[in-house]
Design a protein around this nucleic acid. Sequence first.
DNA 1: TTAAAATAGTTGCACATGCCACTAATTACA
DNA 2: TGTAATTAGTGGCATGTGCAACTATTTTAA
Lengths: 152, 152
Amino acid sequence: MIDQRHTITRWVSLLYRYGQMYIGERLKAHGIGKGQHIFLNALYKEDGLSQEELSSYLKIDKGTTAKALKKLEAQGYVLRQVRAEDKRSYRVFLTEKAWRIKDEVRGVLTDWRHILSDGLTEEEQRLALELLEKMGANAARFIEENDKTPKA
Amino acid sequence: MIDQRHTITRWVSLLYRYGQMYIGERLKAHGIGKGQHIFLNALYKEDGLSQEELSSYLKIDKGTTAKALKKLEAQGYVLRQVRAEDKRSYRVFLTEKAWRIKDEVRGVLTDWRHILSDGLTEEEQRLALELLEKMGANAARFIEENDKTPKA
DNA sequence: TTAAAATAGTTGCACATGCCACTAATTACA
DNA sequence: TGTAATTAGTGGCATGTGCAACTATTTTAA
């Protein structure tokens, strides 16, 4: 019925939304929402980051970051320690409870990647990541340049 | 500081969120939100579809579709006509006001694609679309199969 | 050294999105 | 034919997300 030509933007939208559904479904049982897993995964890689560092690494708004961490803290997955050297900021640490489910949380992303990669060769998977990375870097550069408020 | 290895999922998230920001910013002046442009674009391709058809084509929840169309109708961009043959459903038509901004609305997506494609060869762009399409189809198949409520 | 600018984090608001329960109409079938 | 099942659309709820205004602290510079 409709012309089936899809665009990059359209597929990105589908992949994002469906990925969120999958992740949300898989983590629901732990009381972790689809907006929080990304922070857990970042902290598994490097524990003790500040919210600012998480925000800028993940390129997620600091308000969103604050809310996600608040939930993770309420669920007992992270705790926040005011830094002595700079009392404005925290260090965010994973709790034992968070470390205990590390493999499971990381497994959700791994599994989703496997679902997406079905039928793709190793080479295609590598290429997909490389091209997404290039486009992502372009997007980030553009958006970040354009919200620098013109000084004048 | 943090290991810079990003995954497909991470880049998809960034591309989606930044794309939404870009689109929202560009269409704000027309009173069109970032959640509505996708429906306009689908209708530019084929006018007069039902909400059901739009939902299933775009793979967007029918509740979300209903709300987006309600906004577009309130802004005078679409109107809905009950079908005589099936009084449960509408045909959604673009108004003259919507047709007038067609090039501009479509241009937003084109421009965003150009931003993303900066530094990519034609061949890479083709590949990117092809790989996204394959992964998108995998995602859709998985999600759609898994929410078929087991009959038993 | 003090006043101004920058920075980390919080909160409220608006909006997008999916899910679910619901209504009204249509279709299937006993 | 009449009842059950299915379908199109709506509305409420929960959550994620970005933005903007705000506070508290730290840094810069006059």
